[in-house]
Design a binder for these strands. Structure first.
Length: 439
RNA sequence: GCGGCUAUAGUGUAGCCCGGUCUAGCAUUCGGGACUGUCACUCCUGCGACGCGGGUUCAAAUCCCGCUAGCCGCGCCA
């Protein structure tokens, strides 16, 4: 028989309890992380979103009725009313001596995934039971770092006069070519899920000058790798009156500042993930290599032959990651493999574009954009794209579009690196892959 | 999309190569019992599994085929 919440409300989270509160009555709520029954003495480790506290039931100290009631299973949902007691041998030096206990919900006898820490269940199985899995200490650490990351990025950008924008995720036509789009039915029309905020953020840079968006984009590629998912979470930035040079500077500051904040505010999470020595604040400015320098390096050092104008293969990136382990830029990619909105360099063979790499992984790409309408029209035609399908976008370039530049950063990939995870799906609460649409 | 691999209690694994010894081992979870300072409590005890379908064979967890699910790599990927 389950207890009702009634008029009980939490007075504190587990993290709020301190030695100064000894003797006070508190109400805590959460889930059973561990349960130990020593006969006349029982311990419940109660976990909430911030941590855990020990509830101690000693026969003779608590009522017999309460003592008998405290027979709980892993991940039961409990609320406890009790007195804070200092006890050196208790975890954190504090324990709760309960006067009342509410069992608000129970669990099956056998949980579908391991929640004891004894064994590590397979990722696919954990994802099937994600709402439960996310309560694990590892996941708590990962997503605490994610929260800090987003908070830090937003704070940094707001302090520098950026405006947070939101752009449509349902779009009427293909935006940029390249990746496959998910088609959807929009009443009686065909529509698509957006692949990026690119065109909209460019337009809005002509209004709010410095804009950013943090949101989902969709890639309909059947990529079965540990680095790809179909619904990605990206940071998009666009700055008017700027070039690639300004973007390179602000991006390295963002990376530097975000990792600094994570180390300052979420060190315990980093430690839990054993990343405190690996996720360190990188020195800025980041090394910059031109695309040609990179392919020359790959050729001379690893005998990997890449023609100018070819993309860098997974294998080549892997080798590159052995050579360059920290953050670095690859700039001035061949214009031929960059999208139409990227500004060519003075020598139009090259482009004012860059990728930010961390080891083998591409984290960000960006560059200076074309703001002159005629030049944009020419670029569209050169890439075999139809100006008609970009008609509404092109209109924005009729009314004083400023020179601008920007970037797109994959938040999930970055979190994967920062947490030292093996698979990008670990860094997403509910990942979408070609084979996974639930939960 | 292509190639390689895997599938054993709730979870994680051993056994498979070399068919019989498997009445399928171990850890943990779960049930019962003992235990008043644990923190992966400890100890005793019990329950629980060969993905599905077909084939070979006297005999299949083990060999073969198909299906399903998953894993790894490549390709695709503003």
């Amino acid at each position: 028989m389950l207890d009702k919440l009634g008029d009980w409300r939490k007075t504190h989270y587990t993290k709020d309890l301190s030695p100064e509160m000894v003797g006070k009555e508190v109400i805590l709520g959460g889930w059973v992380r561990n349960y130990r029954d020593l006969g006349g003495l029982k311990f419940i480790s109660l976990q909430d979103k911030y941590g855990e506290r020990q509830i101690t039931l000693k026969r003779g100290v608590v009522s017999d009725e309460l003592f008998e009631k405290a027979k709980v299973g892993y991940q039961y949902c409990l609320m406890v009313k009790g007195i804070v007691k200092a006890f050196n041998e208790a975890p954190g030096g504090i324990e709760i001596i309960p006067s009342e206990l509410k069992v608000l919900n129970t669990t099956p006898e056998k949980l579908p995934i391991d929640m004891t820490g004894e064994t590590v269940s397979e990722l696919d199985l954990r994802l099937n039971h994600r709402a439960l899995d996310l309560r694990s200490l590892k996941n708590q650490a990962i997503f605490r770092i994610r929260g800090e990351m987003l908070r830090s990025i937003r704070k940094f950008l707001f302090e520098r006069n950026f405006t947070e924008i939101t752009t449509p995720k349902i779009i009427g036509s293909a935006t940029e070519g390249g990746t496959e789009l998910f088609p959807i039915i929009y009443f009686d029309k065909e529509a698509f899920l957006t692949q990026s905020a690119q065109l909209y953020k460019e337009q809005l840079s002509g209004v709010y000058e410095r804009v950013f968006e943090i949101s989902d984009c969709f890639r309909a590629e059947k990529s079965r790798t540990k680095r790809h998912i179909c619904e990605i979470f990206t940071l998009d930035i666009e700055m008017a009156f700027s070039t690639m040079e300004d973007i390179l500077k602000i991006l390295e500051e963002i990376v530097h500042n975000t990792i600094k904040d994570i180390r300052e505010n979420q060190m315990s999470a980093l430690k839990y993930l054993e990343m405190e020595d690996k996720t360190i604040v990188p020195e800025i400015p980041f090394p910059r290599y031109r695309y040609e320098e990179i392919i020359n390096l790959l050729n001379s050092k690893f005998k990997i032959d890449i023609e100018f104008g070819e993309d860098i293969s997974t294998d080549a990136y892997r080798k590159l990651g052995e050579e360059l382990t920290s953050y670095y830029y690859i700039t001035h990619w061949p214009m031929s493999i960059k999208p139409f909105y990227i500004m060519p360099s003075e020598n139009p063979k090259y482009s004012e574009s860059f990728d930010l790499q961390k080891g083998m992984l591409e984290l960000t790409s960006g560059g200076t954009r074309v703001h002159n309408k005629q030049q944009l029209l020419n670029a569209l035609e050169n890439q075999g794209l139809s100006p008609i399908s970009f008609k509404t976008h092109l209109k924005a370039f009729d009314y004083g579009m400023p020179p601008h530049a920007g970037l797109g950063l994959g938040i999930d990939r970055w979190l994967t690196m920062i947490c030292g995870l093996d698979d990008i799906r670990e860094a997403v609460m509910y990942p979408r892959t070609p084979d996974r649409l639930t939960p």
